[in-house]
Design a binder for these strands. Structure first.
Lengths: 245, 245
DNA sequence: AGTCATATAATTGTATCCAAGTAAAGCGCT
DNA sequence: AGCGCTTTACTTGGATACAATTATATGACT
């Protein structure tokens, strides 16, 4: 019963074509962590699954590749992107630069009606969290950040942040513990309070702290490869004393 | 004798394919204002010109469309983008947010060797301007801004700014007078001096002023459509008294 | 003359086909 | 058993052919 997870950027006035639906489905599946990082995406399989030819699939994959949600190795095909530790750090650093710097503009553009929209997103986020839908909560948490920046009315900035937020979903999937639910419990509400009072500087500091907390809640260490891990795991397992289950 | 104008973003580790060369040529032609905004880009013509099939061309066009350098109307084809006045304002606003906010990071990352790289860009910009190559000067001026942000080492940010800078070329082509040569005469050197002295705050203020000056040097008014203009032009021309050439 | 409808030309959208490249399996050898 | 080579299967890369859509030009009608 998840709300429709649509890509944030409308990408101009390009009206939705046939393959746009395929894009949105894949996009949603990735950011909702149904397709985990590393999952291979063969063109044939997708074409068959969506009932179209490989041509249409390739267009969609290209778009996702440009948005860095999938990685395409030449002659090897596409798979859901696995951001490296450095990439992850850069994504967070970029988010800090943009979201903090835009905070004065956001505060200036705040109106009660617009606050309501954000408040509703927070409510839905809490509901998803309460229902145990962690992945949906992460997406909603990201949408909060995007909708927040949307108050600036600056489409290029919003599109770019939407991209960074999408990549953040991948990063959480890779480096987060099962407990990491996007942003902290009721932190977003704190920001709304600051905005309602028009405290731009405090809001900016809050955002920096908020993003730092999320980043520091991750285990940003390069995951070990499967090969040596398996070897060690087996020898370790062979030498382990037997224990009844 | 223009230096190779390559797209700033390396777009990951995706090694250059065959169509990447086509992309770079089209990219350069657009930002150098050889292909002016509004120019139609039929797939057949391009395919024939580059000696490849339409398949490869479409991939390139899709990428350019994603970067907002061309506009693709469904069933109508692609043409060089014509940013609206609002788009232009948003591009500049986005640049102000990013480039100003990143200035502390840039100042911190400044080293003499890196300043030399920037200084050389300024030199080449002046040389192009002196040689009357206005379009090249605009591109070099843009590269200065991108290389500046590259000091942060933040790839997502740099890629995004590169996109904004490219769009700035289009905006200048549409709303600039023949005199607008990207950035002011020897302004960039002023910034380098500030960076050398490590004055982060002054550098940030300088950048804001710099970008505002560029924007205000443009005639950001919606261009009149050709239709009524042509009618008026012809009647005006018909009633004009004859004059010997 | 102006306008609407039709027909034609041009361009894009999509599917299918063949070639090329890469990874994996199979085989023989040391 | 381990290592290297060859072959096979699979996947993508690119081109071509056909269908769909749009814009233009032509013509008849008001």
């Amino acid at each position: 019963m998840s709300a429709s997870i649509t890509p944030f950027s409308a990408v101009g006035s390009r009206r939705a074509g046939q393959d746009d639906a395929i894009y949105q489905r894949l996009y949603a599946a990735i950011v909702e962590q149904q397709l985990l990082p590393g999952t291979r995406l063969p063109e044939d399989t997708l074409a068959e699954a969506f009932g179209v030819s490989r041509t249409g699939i390739r267009k969609v994959l290209q778009r996702l590749a440009h948005e860095r949600l999938i990685e395409v190795q030449p002659n090897r095909g596409a798979s859901v992107a696995q951001p490296s530790v450095q990439e992850a750090r850069e994504v967070f650093a970029a988010r800090r630069v943009i979201e903090c710097a835009a905070m004065p503009l956001i505060t200036a553009a705040t109106t009660p009606a617009r606050l309501d929209v954000l408040c509703e997103l927070v409510t839905r986020e809490h509901a998803a969290l309460a229902a145990g839908e962690r992945a949906v909560a992460i997406v909603l948490s990201g949408q909060f950040h995007v909708q927040l920046l949307a108050l600036t009315g600056n489409e290029p900035l919003v599109d770019f942040l939407a991209q960074l937020v999408s990549r953040t979903s991948l990063i959480i999937a890779l480096y987060g513990s099962p407990a990491t639910s996007g942003c902290g419990h009721s932190e977003h509400e704190e920001l709304l309070a600051l905005l309602a009072r028009g405290e731009a500087d405090a809001a900016e500091r809050w955002m920096e702290q908020h993003l730092l907390e999320i980043e520091h809640g991750l285990a940003l260490v390069e995951p070990i490869d499967d090969e040596p891990d398996l070897k060690r795991l087996f020898t370790e397992l062979a030498q382990r004393p037997l224990r009844e289950l």
